[in-house]
Nucleic acid binder design. Structure first.
Lengths: 140, 140
DNA sequence: TTGTTTACTTGAGTGCATCAAGGATCATTG
DNA sequence: CAATGATCCTTGATGCACTCAAGTAAACAA
């Protein structure tokens, strides 16, 4: 399990609550991926393939090196969850797309990762709106 | 940079806000560690050594394998940020403690990781209380 | 055509994480 | 007290994430 990104000494209740949220969220994400024998990174990439797209687009969206995507996609391909087809319009590029099995696994992952849904579900609609507003304001 | 733990298709505004928060938080934590040439895991362990303590206690608190802690502490020791002394009361055990330089780096990390402070600081005291209450309720 | 940029891959290196196995020490029990 | 078992930690092996440097191939521009 990944080590938490813990604030050493939270200087307020709100900070501590933020940290707890992030920690529980991250662990839940990892656990949901593990249920399907996926790493968090694999689940992440698989989840961004609702549309077929190029490696570069994935790397840019995820803010990491292209060679990192190459490896993750290669593993997803080996698992039969993704295909990497040549792009007819640009033979340098590859188009990545989920296979049917990739779609199924992705759907099962979305179902297994209940944390965000459950957490939000504990709040009334009004409270949900308040939380959203507060988080948006805190994010600046 | 670590890939985000992104919800594939957030089913509500609140869920999307939660995800954004977690993503920004994680990236900020990683960036603060990187400024000091630390990995997130190293910063995490270093931050939990306000008191000298055993390897096992660290592993338990962080929810990971003891051998994982062995490696991370070994690297921190090689960096001169931590010492690993024999425990006089139990010669199987080791007591890990920050060196003066470890204290300094840890303090600089706490200073560099401004995200949580800054985010909370954008809210009024009342709003901070509301946020704390909402997050606690959402966490169940 | 020549040169440059773009898209991706490969290879090397580091670190995190887990598991299996082992050594040393403590603790218990017969 | 000696044997047994549990505890604390380390070692070794493996897999994955991540980054950087370097390379290939194709597109593009002059």
């Amino acid at each position: 399990m990944a080590l938490p990104n813990g604030p050493v000494t939270p200087s307020s209740e709100a900070e501590a609550a933020l940290f707890d949220l992030v920690d529980v969220y991250d662990r839940a994400y990892e656990a949901a991926a593990a249920e399907l024998s996926l790493s968090p990174a694999q689940a992440c990439v698989l989840g961004r393939l609702d549309e077929r797209r190029g490696m570069g687009a994935l790397a840019e969206e995820l803010g990491c090196d292209a060679s990192n995507i190459t490896q993750i996609v290669a593993r997803l391909e080996a698992l039969g969850l993704v295909t990497r087809e040549p792009n007819p319009r640009d033979r340098r590029a590859r188009l990545v797309a989920r296979t049917p099995r990739g779609n199924e696994i992705n759907h099962r992952f979305a179902t297994a990762f209940t944390f965000a849904r459950t957490a939000v579900g504990r709040l009334s609609p009004d409270e949900q709106d308040q939380l959203t507003a507060l988080l948006r304001k805190a994010l600046g």
